[in-house]
């Protein structure tokens, strides 16, 4: 039988809105099942709070199966919590010790301002994508699919980079709040494919510039991003981004 009466002391960041000062609030939780997901544990907390007439804790999520990239909690100092290659929505309470203290914080970065409690604004990622994170293809103008052959190896590599879920954990975990892994993953995905080569120079330059404009920090090769990335994007993405960028500025 699974343990369904775990207890936890939660210390959660509460912040009314973007303009307010936040602070930690402590909650004691009982009756947690080890088969609950981390977010279900917070759901349970909120149910209790609401019934008591208190304010629930706001946090972001949607798919709850590790693919949409909405969930975004720093759990005991680690973005997405302690289990490797696992976003916080797929983290289960059995990973924790009964009675443990758990500190829950939002992604913290100037480029990801807090909206409320644990919810942050990641629109900066959208703007990086808008700065060239695409292949221009007018609808209807595409050639027959199999006229573009792609080496299987390149296709597989491109795929690995393309699996980024845009969660922002890389930024949250980076001591410098750098968005290099996210940006590098998209640049790498597109530059590996023959379809993506035509715009590669402009893409690399614009995306890197946008990253800076949005207020993300420098990469110092700590590689913490790769360690917390829920889909295991390799820092070779950052290396490829540098290469694409340097190629763009030196070859033009």
């Amino acid at each position: 039988m699974s343990n369904d009466n775990m207890q936890f002391d939660l210390k959660i960041w509460k912040q009314e809105d973007g303009d307010s000062q936040g602070a930690f609030q402590e909650y004691h939780m009982e009756g947690v099942s080890e088969d609950m997901s981390f977010l279900e544990m917070l759901d349970l907390l909120n149910e209790k709070l609401i019934k008591n007439g208190d304010e629930p804790v706001e946090f972001d999520y949607d798919c709850r199966e590790g693919i949409c990239g909405a969930c975004s909690l720093v759990v005991n100092g680690i973005a997405h919590g302690p289990k490797e290659e696992t976003p916080v929505c797929e983290l289960y309470m059995r990973e924790f010790e009964d009675g443990q203290e758990i500190v829950i914080e939002p992604w913290r970065a100037a480029a990801f301002p807090v909206i409320k409690d644990l919810v942050v604004d990641r629109s900066a990622f959208d703007r990086i994508m808008a700065a060239g994170g695409y292949i221009s293809t007018k609808t209807g103008s595409a050639p027959e699919a199999n006229t573009i052959a792609v080496d299987k190896e390149d296709a597989d590599k491109a795929f690995d980079y393309a699996t980024c879920i845009g969660c922002g954990a890389c930024v949250a975990a980076c001591p410098n709040s750098s968005a290099s892994l996210f940006t590098g993953a998209k640049i790498s995905h597109l530059s590996l494919l023959p379809q993506g080569k035509h715009e590669r120079k402009e893409r690399a330059v614009r995306m890197v510039e946008q990253m800076e404009k949005e207020g993300f920090g420098d990469c110092s090769n700590h590689a913490e991003c790769e360690a917390v990335c829920p889909v295991g994007i390799s820092i070779s993405a950052i290396a490829r981004m540098r290469k694409e960028y340097m190629r763009a500025v030196t070859e033009s």
Binding site: K11, W13, G22, F24, V74, N76, G77, I78, P82, E84, V103, E105, R108, A109, A110, A111, A173, P175, N176, S177, S178, G215, F216, G217, D218, E224, A227, V228
Partner: peptide, 15 residues
Amino acid sequence: KRKRRPVGYEKYSSM
């Protein structure tokens, strides 16, 4: 770097 993360973490660990 300080400007990039004005509010730091209460608890921070490496993975």
